[in-house]
Design a protein around this nucleic acid. Structure first.
Lengths: 357, 357
DNA sequence: AAACCGTAAGTAAACGTTTTCAACTAAGGC
DNA sequence: GCCTTAGTTGAAAACGTTTACTTACGGTTT
């Protein structure tokens, strides 16, 4: 001790070798065996009060922190989830990720973020990494309806907790949490019909996306139920992006018998439609009603405020994590499908057709 | 082998015990020692071509994947970064995080996401976790100018690669990558002055944020240089959020001698100002010019398009990771400060003062 | 008094790699 | 023919924990 001080004084900044303190150091200091230390640390097994105290004192004095890598090695648990999404820049995934990370943190898990851009090769790379790192579970939030990687992982690691968020994957039975996309599509369309619109367009995302398809089904069902014709040229699928809404919006709105209302597959697409409408000289909602999906931050920012179908993003993210945690703790897979109801949020982008004199 | 097949046939779905295949299995199959397997896996040391082949064959056949936890245990490297940000929901951090994660992935690193909400206690929790998990480096992107946690980590783990992104921390010498906030503030203000504005407001973020302060300095410097008076009641600091822009915007715009232009501390604040202006009945840019900061997605979405100071978010994120990787690989800390230049992006939210009536 | 039990604590194996060390071979130089 | 050396491999230790097993002790129960 004394010597060390002198040493420091003499050389000033000594190269800080600073051996990380391990359970062995604690054991030595507390004058017990390492198994005893481990026992009080995890309070498992029998430990006397006196020993407990000694050990805790040593822990405090040495500022000992358990090395989780070593723990992971033997327990085969890393308290880490992998989160696989297309792109965190996308505001929808931002909100989702935040909810997931928060809930995971509450349960003592960290999350490793993976952006795949819907690229299956990239997804596979990430998956390999995650698996080799011994993550405790994977949360998929990929729109892709036909993800062979997921099936592969299920085969090679049938034990690994996985839950799918916001989508379904074909031929796969897994825990999943979803919005009722059909219902959302139906509600959105019904809302427009109730306002008197008869020519309604739909601009959706990727055509191999579960959400796109289900929302479209809801759209069609509503039209049919109300006896309105389905005009295929007013239905466009592209991507869940602003740009797509803009491009497809312009296409649709350029036509002579343009729709008087557009159901956008999500809020980003709706934002693109706003831009297209502006360019074509159409006023929202007077000349064109627009309804979105998700109720993301975009919906409030835009002027006029976007009427949209609210997806309970945060709730879904939280539920997903809770499911994953439960699967881990109870060590069994429920293969549940949890469906959240969407709700209509009326702002200022939809109006009665009557306004169009 | 035969027996096993029978077994499977008899019982169909046998409980899949599926011992994960280890280097030992490979060694047994290839008829060599585990050290040899390790050598060909990492191709280190001497290995004959024939043995190499045998081992690789065994690896393929068994579909062996190295367990990274075990590797981490002995190498003390996890190929993982911790990323500490206030909130991934915030679109700015979404863009930043994407760039960081991409670059990290390119270099073979994963990133653990941590949302702190600028809460130092929460940050500390995350830090503890990360440290115990043996992450290879930490990227901080917290606005807080006075982060005691960072200082603490530097003390306890002087060897740990850390870089600060987008901010500076008092009394700390660390690698950092920044935008030139002063220059950005100056440029924004100058732009407004050039358009003929003489009464200009500033709505900034947290007052203990480096960005807020520097941008304000630039603002003041520009005013002074051009001989314009500084009106304190037109300067408001709150948070880098839409809501703050709205609230403070309303306060400022309610006044009789309201400014004819507002420099918003970031794009989110600008969006709030838009809303405030709308409520007060001011048209942008005819009645009020607004300039933002960041050039995030918001800037394009909003109508009219937001003139703003572009922060090269992606480039900064990438550079940060490259710096971190370099520090790890070369095992030395550069303590560099890398400054990126911001640029003015003109859209439609700023106009010459002459346009007013 | 023998057998049993609950409590307490230590010894050593285990987790799956990497790496040091030692052992051995074959080839080349003298 | 001996020494050196480069090439090749295996045994075993190490990384920092957890845990199964063992030992020990004092007190009950029979």
């Amino acid at each position: 001790m004394h010597i060390r001080k002198r040493f420091h004084k003499l050389f000033g900044e000594v190269k800080n070798v600073e051996k990380t303190v391990t359970i062995k150091d604690v054991a030595r200091k507390a004058n017990v065996s390492i198994s005893t230390v481990s026992r009080v640390l995890n309070n498992s097994g029998y430990t006397s009060a006196s020993v407990k105290e000694k050990v805790n004192k040593a822990v405090d004095e040495l500022k000992f922190q358990k090395n989780m890598v070593a723990t992971a090695m033997i327990k085969k648990q890393t308290s880490t989830f992998g989160l696989i999404i297309p792109d965190i820049k996308n505001i929808f995934y931002g909100e989702l990720t935040r909810a997931i990370e928060d809930k995971a943190h509450q349960h003592g898990f960290n999350v490793i973020l993976c952006n795949t851009d819907n690229n299956l090769e990239k997804e596979k790379e990430y998956l390999n990494f995650l698996l080799r790192k011994g993550i405790d579970g994977i949360i998929f939030s990929t729109p892709e309806i036909n993800d062979r990687n997921i099936r592969e992982v299920m085969k090679s690691r049938p034990d690994l907790p996985m839950v799918i968020l916001g989508s379904k994957v074909q031929n796969v039975r897994l825990d999943e949490v979803l919005v009722d996309n059909f219902d959302g599509g139906y509600t959105a369309t019904e809302h427009l019909i109730d306002l008197g619109h008869e020519r309604i367009g739909y601009i959706g995302g990727q055509q191999d996306s579960y959400a796109t398809l289900e929302r479209l089904k809801g759209f069609k069902a509503a039209l049919e139920e109300r006896g309105l014709p389905l005009d295929k040229k007013h239905i466009k699928l592209d991507e869940f992006k602003i740009h797509s809404g803009y491009e497809k919006g312009k296409e649709i709105l350029a036509k002579k018998d343009r729709p008087t209302a557009i159901f956008a597959g999500n809020d980003a697409i709706a934002v693109g439609v706003y831009k297209a409408a502006r360019e074509v000289g159409l006023k929202i909602p007077e000349d064109l009603s627009v309804i979105g999906f998700d109720d993301s931050q975009f919906a409030e920012i835009v002027d006029p405020g976007l009427t949209t179908i609210r997806t309970p993003i945060a709730e879904m993210g939280e539920k997903t994590v809770e499911l994953a945690v439960q699967i881990i703790k109870e060590n069994k897979n429920f293969k549940e499908s949890i469906m959240f109801p969407p709700t209509l949020v009326e702002r200022a982008s939809t109006a009665s057709i009557k306004k169009v004199h």
